[in-house]
Amino acid sequence: MKFTARLSLRLLLLSLLLLGSACRRKQGGEGAISDSMYSDVGGIGQFDDFEQFGLPETRGGIENMTAVDSSAYAPVYFAFDSYSVASGENSKVRMVASNLQSNRGQAVILQGHTDERGSREYNIALGERRALAVREVLISMGISPDRIQTLSYGEELPAVAGSDESAYSLNRRVEFQLMQ
């Protein structure tokens, strides 16, 4: 009932707006009808601080560092729907830890990926969870958390095309991108 009442109110507002724009003889854009469709009641917080493209600083400046060739470091692979780092994958993480220990000016972005199954949004979280799991292994090996950033692409950037398990198993991965 409330919903219907709200809708009636909106139709009323809509009619008023139609008449209003008629009086002002508004030109351009999508016209009076379209304008009125987006003039619903209710707001959403403060918009005074809206900015067109300028964005605040984030992530400790790692985005301003330069990518280092990281092809020597193999991705860590995962089982389906899993974010546990298998013990057989630990040696890959250890190579990265050793490198970070001998190159104090470097940091690392852990890029998490999933296979294509599941929702795109859930896969962002799953890939993030995988990157965070590798991060925990790196921290346990003595790397400072502030030198590690996680970046999950979910299923958006598969390493291998295809919809079978051989492709899936290569796509469930965390890649290392060293920065300096």
């Binding site: 987006y38 493209f53 979280a125």
Partner: peptide, 21 residues
Amino acid sequence: LQRLQPAGRKVVSSSSGMNSG
């Protein structure tokens, strides 16, 4: 958050790691 009229966009969340949902 992106607004249609007048057009504009602002960051809601850009902390370290993942911001989504």
